[in-house]
Write a protein that binds this DNA or RNA. Structure first.
Lengths: 192, 192
DNA sequence: ATGTCAAACTAACAATTGTTAGTTTTGTAG
DNA sequence: CTACAAAACTAACAATTGTTAGTTTGACAT
């Protein structure tokens, strides 16, 4: 699920993101993080600059993963809009399986970013705009029902952004089926 | 959108929930709440017992609204499962339009409940179980596609729980259409 | 053995936290 | 005008916060 940390700093970030997921950034203290690692709070500062830096590292890392993934999808040729949507769903499932805690932190604590806040918001706006364009093209080409793209965008994105809440509970076998089932529900609906 | 506060305590709760929505429970101080009301932090304690009480009031209030709404839906006779799902969607849209800040607080800060935490979790488990039963009955009767009820539950509930993020931006006219569009997308999908 | 360097430690800081105690202001009913 | 209750205030508290400075430890190459 999560990679082996390569540096001591990465260990700190990985410990922090687990705690952030449970209680949120503001409710987690540097002493909490240190205790979870079996060291003292002051020792953390041999490896990081500030608590804020931990948060930035977590969120910007994931934000840029989504940006890169979306760029690839936008660049795809000779595919339908539905196929692009399937790729978006796959992108979310993959990233969330790899980094459930980071996803939780990005979703819940982005507003506590300081210097990096505007950059994060820019990434998010661009991502949503690409998503919206894919939906509009699909409607134009008749591949997607002519319903408000905004409502579709909201509905799919809400589900994908909540994946971190459900994925950690499932075993690997279920995760494999998840992508297919989720695509079916989100794209074709639940009525026969 | 929000009711006129009847008591000074309700004013405090309403001020608090707006701030909780923006920054989360842990990041909002009693001095923040007081300042937003133009008074001093100590004055709040003429009306409330603790910061924790504010959070409890907000979350339990909403939690019980959902419990009551779901009880009515479960008790409905001579209706299809799809009609019950439409009523669930309507329930979420209505409550969220009336209390967007409370919804945000319930979704994001329930884990900071103390004495009332177990009661809240019980309400939530019961709600989800009723939802699950409606889905299973729908599948049995052939009114709902035979896809994993768990995935359907997750998908619809994720969207409904995120409504607070989108609803405050829309004007009243859009809100009226929202219910219909949302039902269409969630139930019949987006493919023609 | 010695020197080096990363990574831990102790001790402390200034600021901020939720909350209490006791006092003063304010508006309204008699 | 007076009395009373509601609701504000000032001042302070003990605990906790992120962070810094300076020191010690431990592993390893020389």
């Amino acid at each position: 699920m999560t990679q082996k940390p390569a540096t001591r700093k990465e260990e700190i970030v990985q410990t922090a993101e687990m705690l952030f997921k449970k209680k949120g950034y503001s409710a987690v203290t540097m002493r909490d993080i240190a205790q979870a690692m079996g060291i003292k709070a002051a020792s953390l500062y041999n490896h990081i600059q500030s608590k804020q830096e931990i948060l930035s590292d977590i969120i910007i890392n994931i934000g840029e993963q989504f940006t890169e993934g979306m760029a690839e999808i936008v660049a795809m040729e000779n595919v339908t809009s539905i196929q692009k949507l399937e790729r978006i769903i796959k992108l979310h499932v993959q990233i969330t399986i790899e980094n459930p805690s980071r996803m939780a932190t990005m979703n819940n604590d982005w507003m506590h970013l300081e210097e990096k806040l505007e950059y994060y918001l820019q990434l998010r706006r661009n991502y949503e705009e690409s998503f919206r364009q894919i939906l509009k093209q699909g409607i134009e080409k008749g591949e997607i029902k002519n319903v408000s793209p905004e409502v579709i965008l909201f509905s799919i994105l809400s589900t994908l952004r909540s994946l971190y809440l459900w994925i950690p509970k499932k075993e690997e076998s279920i995760k494999e089926n998840l992508l297919g089932k989720l695509s079916q529900v989100l794209l074709t609906g639940i009525t026969p």
